[in-house]
């Protein structure tokens, strides 16, 4: 993991700069040192990647403390609408960013993409090899009401496969839990979740047609919020996200 992330970071830097190979924290663009506390409301699937981004951002800006609120995107929108504190909002889909549009102080920018992948318990007990095999499997997916469920339905449509899951979960982590516990023979989760699960699952990639895109936006016009968003969108930010399995938007 560590080696891969360094390799990805190195490649990204080589591609951009063509020389230096050691990743360096992005210097803050503004002349005055940034300070204060930054609260970032971010989709649950971003937890690992954003925690690392937050650490790096704090390292580059010692006077800044970054705090995160990780939850499902729609729950975050509801909390923000009810007055929860937040300077930056990173959503797992455009629909929830749209719901928060009245709270935003700038236009949302896409910073990452995520695709679905098939996961099975170790050993792949029911021998899943392709998306079509899911039709007869003891399968768990996300409910159509949440972003990963929308993506699941779109992939099934594109593949022309009728899925008959035994359970439609509220969140992608719940789907993953069903698979790692061995209750289900297969699940459809995001590539990033499969990556984070490591050896607890076997991963079977298929030709995806849907890329779930993640927008990020400031909730006020603070400099720190703008600097954090710029950092997430920077090459270094992208390479950190890539190391957790996120695609470029």
């Amino acid at each position: 993991m560590r080696i891969r992330s360094l390799a990805v970071a190195g490649l990204a830097l080589l591609a951009v700069a063509g020389c230096s190979a050691s990743p360096t924290p992005a210097p803050s663009s503004s002349a005055a040192a940034l300070e204060g506390t930054l609260t970032v409301a971010a989709a649950a699937s971003l937890q690992n990647a954003f925690t690392e981004l937050g650490d790096l951002f704090e390292g580059a800006n010692p006077e800044v403390t970054v705090e995160f609120a990780f939850a499902g995107s729609s729950a975050l929108v509801a909390q923000l609408q009810e007055g929860a504190p937040g300077d930056v909002f990173a959503s797992a889909d455009a629909a929830n960013m749209e719901k928060a549009s009245e709270l935003l102080s700038g236009d949302p920018e896409l910073f990452a993409g995520n695709t679905l992948t098939i996961v099975t318990p170790p050993g792949n007990p029911s021998g899943i090899e392709s998306f079509a095999d899911l039709a007869d499997a003891r399968l768990v997916v996300c409910a159509a009401q949440v972003p990963c469920g929308t993506a699941t339905a779109a992939e099934a449509d594109a593949a022309g496969v009728t899925l008959s899951p035994v359970s439609e979960e509220q969140s992608v982590t719940d789907v993953l839990g069903r698979v790692t516990s061995g209750e289900a023979d297969a699940g459809l989760v995001y590539a990033t979740d499969a990556e984070a699960a490591g050896d607890a699952v076997e991963r079977i990639d298929f030709d995806t047609t849907v890329v779930n895109e993640y927008p990020i936006a400031a909730l006020n016009d603070s400099e720190v919020a703008a600097a954090f968003i710029a950092f997430v969108l920077s090459d270094e930010g992208r390479s950190v996200l890539a190391s957790y399995g996120f695609k470029a938007p």
């Binding site: 409910a143 359970s167 979960e169």
Partner: peptide
């Protein structure tokens, strides 16, 4: 789990809706 008609009771439906 959570599946309409089989395991999705009212509280689960509320949470999902």
């Amino acid at each position: 789990g959570s599946y309409q008609g089989t395991t999705r009771t009212l509280p689960l439906e509320i949470y999902l809706q």
